[in-house]
Design a protein around this nucleic acid. Structure first.
Lengths: 185, 185
DNA sequence: TTGAATATGTATCGATTCGATACTTAATCA
DNA sequence: TGATTAAGTATCGAATCGATACATATTCAA
């Protein structure tokens, strides 16, 4: 019975997010899934900004995502850069316009206000939600899409952060970005 | 910065729910929004099972919802009953098939398992999510869709529960159902 | 090193969602 | 009684989405 109320609340929150997204003037011309893709692209690292990574993150098929990305590109919110190593692959980056749009509306004001009103309890909620996600990922063998700095391949060297999987040094600040290759420590 | 991580986690949870829904054999032929509507209809009271109530709950337009409900009816998952008082209005009830489908898949197993693994912390998460929703509703003047028993019109009389708004006695068990007229005490 | 298997990404099709608009019918209220 | 409001449906066009098929590039084994 306990998980049932959790599901109820998440359903309700989803509905509220949808209503908010539909009413917001900046988002009226964007579909919810496009906003999700933009949001992911703004928070992931250079290994994780490909169409396939977006596909895995959103839980859709690559064909569907390809279409949505085409729309975003056509609207001037993202830009495609061919991968110098793998000529099949493409990297997606936000344009200035895309970044500005996203900064103007995330996080949703109604969420931020409510979280602030909860104070310490809001921070606790955040921590518990995070714990729930980690638990799900461990139980379900689902790609974790965690932050680079919390990965078991992450090394803190004297010269700076380093990825033990790709054997390459990382830019400073990379620790806070989402990585599709992330594996819990 | 605090509300931002909250948004990240909710986005990720939404993606996980979508992926789960797409992979589940019983849901393969149902759209996520149809599942949401079914779920709502299974948890609301007799004042709240109309197309307009579903529209408000989901944050969509009545035209859109009308179409989705037509699909659900055509699939034999819900049934329409004309309102005896208001001849414009229609009440929606789940068929046996609809009830069976919903019971087979809610709450999602992966959510329930993770919540159980968290134990007491899972219950705390539930309570905090509930608090977040109440806070949002108070701040944003959004319809609360709360449980009948927590409404300021709810009366506990000797003969049984009673609604002070419609001035009618309620069936026992009604306290646990969602009401579109709900107002916090 | 050649060839099969695999991976990334795109194109197309049909069913569905979704908002906008217009419409019908019924209830409400002045 | 008549105007306004409300519930619900129908239709249209744009977009999502999954399925399928396809082109290109990489990998890996023989």
């Amino acid at each position: 019975m306990s998980g049932n109320a959790l599901y109820d609340y998440l359903e309700r929150l989803t509905s509220l997010m949808r209503a908010w997204s539909r009413e917001h003037p900046l988002l009226a011309e964007l579909q919810p899934v496009q906003v999700s893709a933009l949001h992911y692209l703004s928070r992931c690292n250079g290994y994780s900004n490909t169409p396939m990574a977006v596909t895995e993150y959103l839980g859709l098929t690559k064909g569907t995502v390809s279409q949505s990305l085409k729309v975003l590109e056509h609207k001037g919110l993202i830009r495609k850069q061919p991968d110098p190593q793998d000529k099949r692959s493409v990297h997606l980056e936000l344009t200035g316009e895309g970044t500005a749009l996203l900064e103007a509306l995330t996080p949703p004001a109604f969420l931020q206000q409510a979280a602030e009103a909860l104070g310490l309890r809001g921070e606790m909620l955040e921590a518990l939600l995070r714990e729930l996600l980690v638990t799900i990922q461990r139980q379900q063998d689902v790609p974790s899409f965690g932050l680079c700095g919390s990965c078991r391949f992450h090394e803190r060297r004297e010269e700076g952060p380093f990825c033990g999987l790709t054997r390459q040094p990382l830019a400073s600040g990379a620790e806070r970005l989402i990585c599709r290759e992330h594996e819990s420590a």
